[in-house]
Design a protein around this nucleic acid. Structure first.
Lengths: 241, 241
DNA sequence: CCATGTGAATACTTTCACAGCC
DNA sequence: GGCTGTGAAAGTATTCACATGG
């Protein structure tokens, strides 16, 4: 809906990194971590871009929003750049999340290995089902839904994850907001309404597959039209992530 | 990397729906289904847009790429529009997917209720671990990784889902491509390289949380700068999905 | 009248191409 | 010489505002 971005902070500091760039910084971070593990100390934008799966120019433009952390004629110091991006992304601290809904998806998320190394810590699990409350999932005791307020304030939780069925999503979002959460990741296939100032990101598993199905369909029909019309140039479509 | 889009098909048919629009059509479809279930027969762009969580103008523009399926002064016929979008998205047929990797995430995906009503059918499960092969997950027997070719061709599978750990992702992608798959949804936190003509979409759970953490951090620092400098206008930032 | 459908305006993103600096 | 950092250009996406037609 509405996106207001300050290009300049109140104090006059130039900020306001474009959304598209913010979404890629974690990818660069991961690529840099991989390089660091291989013992690579320095790299050029080409190499890093290749690792990250993006165009080198885009990588450089993205990094330019953070500052000038490279050396002309040389490249980037892996460790230094890694630190700068991590700092920008707020990864110098750990972020505690609460997962609401401990079904298949919620359980899988709570067991996900990739979070800890990215500054994400699953601090609490919550479920509305009394049958699940009290059970231990991934080493965490599941708490009842109405303890959200206490959990959030006591454990300094700043991010909520909705992993419930769709019908419960809006109520859970309301409760998260009431508990003071201002960032929500929603896996439920439902649109949740939140007050201004609260960020919601949505991950919808079927939608991703539906988008792929759409492209499959187009490929298929392009093929048939190509065979029926020998002179037609078929469309090649590549969307690399 | 490279995105080539044909705005016009070989036969001259006007096509080439923008990517951003394609990504939203499933959302509209879901909203329409919800309305249909409530017994709503007709709706205006405002209502549908509200349900879908988008701007009405954007909705109308999106729909205009499909054709003129509304009635001026009235709105859209729910069932008719639903069918038109479904057809455009290739949802008049079912799409079979194979999930590679039956760990926590793969299991959760195979049990996911939301797929069947969206034209997605989990047709096969595959894992490299001999311990898992032969076990039954969500009613499907897990097959060994090297039977991919047979599975894909015999069951007409067109979409592959990678739900393995990161190090295995590239090899799995290669095998999927070798088996004839041209659409891949990758949940592994790794960039996979694929040949031209293969679509890859990536869902990265930690990245979504890292993006939220970034915004949290900005909110926090905006707050502190606001308290330290009473006259400064703080930035309000809302990104609704 | 009223809500759609759409040109035109605006905003954002990507890519190019080269000046600038090591 | 070579690679970064960045203006400028090209390509997409969103939003506005109103002509259009039921």
């Amino acid at each position: 809906m509405t996106i207001l971005r300050s290009t300049r902070l109140a104090d006059g500091t130039a900020r306001g990194i474009p959304d598209a760039t913010v979404a890629r910084l974690p990818v660069y971070l991961r690529a840099l971590n991989a390089l660091a593990e291989q013992g690579v100390l320095s790299c050029a934008s080409n190499e890093l871009a290749e690792q990250a799966g993006v165009n080198p120019a885009k990588l450089r433009k993205d990094l330019s929003y953070l500052g000038s952390y490279g050396t002309r004629g040389v490249g980037y110091d892996v460790e230094y750049l890694r630190y700068q991006i991590a700092r920008e992304m707020g990864q110098t601290q750990d972020w505690d999340v609460v997962i609401v809904g401990v079904g298949n998806l919620g359980s899988a998320l709570s067991a996900y290995q990739g979070f800890s190394t990215r500054g994400i810590r699953v601090a609490a699990l919550v479920d509305a089902d009394p049958q699940r409350v009290g059970t231990v999932v991934s080493g965490i005791v599941v708490s009842p839904l109405d303890t959200l307020d206490t959990l959030v304030s006591e454990r300094q939780i700043s991010i909520g994850v909705i992993a419930t069925p769709a019908p419960a999503a809006q109520e859970v979002a309301d409760r998260l907001v009431a508990a003071g959460i201002t960032s929500i990741l929603n896996f439920a296939p439902a649109i949740v309404q939140v007050p201004e100032g609260v960020d919601v990101r949505k991950v919808d598993l079927s939608i991703e597959l539906q988008i792929l199905a759409y492209h499959e369909q187009r490929k298929a029909s392009a093929d048939t039209s190509a065979t029926s019309k020998a002179t037609s140039k078929t469309t090649s479509k590549v969307v690399s992530a």
